[in-house]
Design a protein around this nucleic acid. Structure first.
Lengths: 132, 132
DNA sequence: TCTTGACCTCGAGCGCGCTTGGGGTACTAG
DNA sequence: CTAGTACCCCAAGCGCGCTCGAGGTCAAGA
């Protein structure tokens, strides 16, 4: 396939994997787990991903990397499929996630402070040694 | 054992677990993995932890929670045991970890921005619906 | 004396999020 | 016609960081 008709045909699995920065296996896994809906197929049954799919997988990765579990992600997807009337629940889910992310960032920053403290300790110790 | 002689005898495993906010199993695991050195024992072979042990486990947890692997933690401990001449290596290890933590915090903040974007999207959508 | 409960050791098991292996199909270039 | 490559599906496997279970010791309290 040439690059010319990507917009019409969609991305091949390997192109998609590259664009979304995940492995093909992970894409299959997400599909199995209900995180990706109705990926279109070409005549020979091979997947063809759309630009929307790319964007969605990036969102999924973003949520995953900030600690959202597969379970929660599945819930979020299912709510999306049920239509606009689930928006309040989706908002709740995101607010809940948001607060966890904020907590994590704060925890990381605290830990960073300890790491910095230790770094300074070693720097001091080493600079004193140098002087001797 | 009364609380009176903790300073002399050290903390029991359950006291230690509570203080350091980890399970007894985790303490044993860390010991097995070489992250805790020479935990003292009482006459009947039961562990008695010192205040230093508490502090050290807290450091370990802090590093673990910011993504340092058991492997790296083990290296760090082993360097510590080898004496002061390993301080430069320990400093390197912490600097390396520090930069990873900074990266993670930045990634989390980026993800947070996306989550906020989506939160605002739902809020807008819902407030528009309310007006109708 | 008996029970209870906290501790001991060792090895196996678990949960999560992928990842890999095996066996098959389909299109393309030489 | 053949080889190569990209894909398909399914089920099993893996790596990490714990966590649990079984079977035993020990000491205090009823």
């Amino acid at each position: 396939m040439t690059e010319a008709n990507i917009e019409i045909d969609g991305l091949t699995p390997s192109q998609m994997a590259q664009q979304a920065d995940v492995s093909i296996d992970t894409l299959h896994y997400y599909e199995r787990e209900g995180l990706l809906q109705a990926i279109s197929r070409n005549a020979s049954g091979h997947r063809r991903y759309s630009a929307t799919d790319v964007a969605w997988v990036k969102v999924l990765r973003c949520l995953r990397e900030t600690g959202m579990t597969m379970e929660q992600l599945r819930t979020y997807c299912q709510l999306g499929e049920q239509g606009d009337h689930t928006q309040p629940e989706r908002l709740d889910l995101l607010l809940c996630h948001r607060s966890k992310v904020v907590q994590k960032i704060e925890a990381m920053q605290q830990s960073l402070a300890l790491v910095d403290y230790k770094i300074n300790f070693y720097r001091d110790a080493l600079s004193k040694k140098d002087k001797q």
